[in-house]
Design a protein around this nucleic acid. Structure first.
Lengths: 158, 158
DNA sequence: TATGAAAAGGGGTTGCT
DNA sequence: AGCAACCCCTTTTCATA
């Protein structure tokens, strides 16, 4: 599928994001189409990788990972060689939920979930700050989650 | 369920996060337990809200939302009254995927997904910066996603 | 009371029109 | 592209320890 998403695709995706277990019949009803049509669309969307995975979202607090920290990491100016290593390490830390390269004066932003502030301290000193080429880490503890979703509001493309 | 998660819960949750559609039989096999036992655990975990929702994760690029921006927002010092309004507005922007209150000198961090930089500019000027009480916004465009998951690595509690 | 087995119902999948 | 039959998997119920 190099093709763009049409309106039917968009509506299917939005509904599936809200509840991935919605029965095919209900889904077809809501998008005013037939079971077969909708089913085939979903197949296409999964083959094309538009739908990446089916998962469950957990309550971090109830799952024992109540502390969320955003860590902004700056690398040493002339340590381009240490980047692959940094990336590899970060990918293998289960505490790191996300890591994005940023434009501007910060190099990386990391979203980290741990059981406690104590646990973050351990992670910070023994893992993150020990990676070669790391110059500066600015850790911000998140207080309230005003909004925390994964939902992308899809609309038909051109 | 005020009770803590045991090892069986943890293994079920980790597997379901990897693939929410795993058949109950396979799940039972992998955690070395019976269908019934595993099924009842899942019910409990959903009732208790440990499992918050079943969803699909989309490829943002392929879904036409290829631009990711982290916006750090500072509010005016003496505008505590405008916070509820800010929160309400942010929750209703579909572009804003996440918004967390932070300790330290930044008040909020927002994760925003839009189709293009142009679209972000529109969102920035016409929506975000117009909210009452907003003093300063620092927008960072994300380049590469080094890691982008929702997976919490669960282990048994105390 | 908790666990396992087996029956029944619902829904996803496929082939045919 | 739509329809219907099939089959698998979830869900419930019952029996047992």
């Amino acid at each position: 599928m190099a093709e763009k998403l049409d309106d039917l695709d968009a509506r299917i995706l939005n509904l599936m994001q809200d509840d991935a277990r919605i029965p095919l019949v209900d889904l077809a009803d809501k998008v005013a189409s037939s079971r077969s049509a909708v089913w085939r669309r979903i197949q296409k969307l999964e083959e094309a990788g538009v739908i990446k995975k089916h998962t469950v979202l957990l309550d971090a607090e109830k799952a024992g990972l109540g502390v969320l920290v955003f860590a902004q990491v700056k690398m040493q100016a002339h340590s381009r060689d240490s980047l692959p290593n940094f990336i590899e390490r970060v990918r293998n830390f289960p505490e790191v939920i996300e890591c994005h390269t940023l434009m501007g004066d910060i190099d990386f932003i990391l979203k980290v979930r741990v059981p406690s502030i104590q646990a973050y301290e351990d992670f910070f000193w023994n893992q993150l700050s020990q990676i070669e080429g790391v110059r500066e880490i600015n850790s911000s503890i998140a207080l309230t989650a005003v909004k925390d979703t994964t939902r992308l509001n899809i609309s038909a493309q051109s």
